[in-house]
Simulated scan of single mutants.
Amino acid sequence: MMYNWMERLSDDAEVPTPRRVQPSLSVAFEYVEAENEFNFYIRNVTNYPMTPTLHKTESRAVMHLVKGISRKTSVMGWARTITWQDIKEKDPFTYQTLNVVRASTTIYNEFFTCKVSPREFKNTLLRIQICDIDEHDQNVVVAEMDYWINTHIISQFTQFELPFPPFTPDLGEIELHMTYLPVSERLIVHYSTVTNLKLDEKCKEIFVRGVLFVGGRQFERHQSETKKRSENACTDDGMHFTQKLLFDLDRKYVPKAEVLLHVIQVVEDRDLIVGQVSISMLHSEQGQQMLKALRTTISRVHRLIPSAG
């Protein structure tokens, strides 16, 4: 009987299986040795990481050009990891594109130039970041890569398509307990636990916000109780939120439903997103398990990813 219910549910709407395709950055580089000029053109990003958002999100590309940075490898031959501390010590040049609307293919179409001497050429790094822009006009990095400008021969403008992995900083985790009740047609998210959060030093309070989207449109928004900051939130012990998030979800809309969870910190009376997780009812492991075991609570720990809201 459970299987038949799931079978009918799947037939109610055509839901394409999402493709997991690595984002790609389209750029062009040129080095004019006679002029000591390094020129670069940021064209676009394809297969851009997309999740539902609460407001229209804009994007910009930010580039940090770092001269004279060491490329030494380890004794084992591993490539050196360049930290932000390494970059700041070299006083980088920073460039950014104009704001554009975020889309699966986000187009920037901007040209930049910088003086780089032949002596500096082999030890110059270009860190390229794709950023969503939050409601406070702050950059939220969603994809990042490092490019040594002497990697390819670029005596004349040459275009490249470079793999551009999503940015996955360690922001913390959230454990979610989810249940779907088919008779009352209600989705319940309850007893959420956040662990190992990376919080601002001025963070005062923390809460969890849940938003139900159906077919990409926002239907309901709820939030947990607000708790005073505790050191447990930054450890494996975690901070627990007991208030249930109750969403009315008609079974015929389940195939198109997605729940967006934000972990939010309050800093100087501003609500800042620490990170998010998005749960598709049909395409996520937790959603699939929940719909196969109706009325049963399914729990999963999710790693938080960057979010501009």
Score class of each variant (00 low, 15 high):
residue 1 M to I: 10
residue 9 L to M: 14
residue 12 D to C: 13
residue 17 T to Q: 14
residue 19 R to T: 11
residue 21 V to H: 05
residue 32 V to L: 14
residue 44 N to Q: 12
residue 51 T to K: 02
residue 53 T to Y: 11
residue 54 L to N: 06
residue 58 E to K: 13
residue 61 A to L: 09
residue 87 I to D: 03
residue 92 P to Y: 03
residue 95 Y to K: 03
residue 98 L to Y: 12
residue 99 N to W: 07
residue 100 V to A: 02
residue 102 R to N: 06
residue 104 S to N: 10
residue 106 T to P: 00
residue 108 Y to V: 05
residue 117 S to Y: 02
residue 127 R to D: 05
residue 134 D to Y: 08
residue 134 D to F: 07
residue 137 D to P: 00
residue 145 M to Y: 03
residue 153 I to R: 08
residue 154 I to W: 04
residue 159 Q to L: 06
residue 162 L to Q: 12
residue 164 F to P: 02
residue 166 P to S: 12
residue 171 L to Q: 05
residue 186 R to V: 15
residue 186 R to D: 07
residue 188 I to G: 03
residue 189 V to Q: 02
residue 192 S to R: 07
residue 193 T to F: 02
residue 196 N to R: 15
residue 197 L to D: 05
residue 203 C to D: 04
residue 205 E to V: 01
residue 208 V to N: 01
residue 219 F to Y: 09
residue 220 E to D: 15
residue 231 E to G: 06
residue 235 T to M: 04
residue 239 M to K: 01
residue 240 H to R: 10
residue 241 F to Q: 03
residue 246 L to A: 00
residue 249 L to S: 04
residue 252 K to G: 03
residue 255 P to W: 01
residue 256 K to H: 10
residue 259 V to Y: 04
residue 261 L to Y: 06
residue 269 D to Y: 08
residue 275 G to I: 00
residue 281 M to G: 00
residue 288 Q to L: 10
residue 288 Q to V: 05
residue 294 L to H: 03
residue 300 R to G: 04
residue 301 V to S: 12
residue 302 H to E: 13
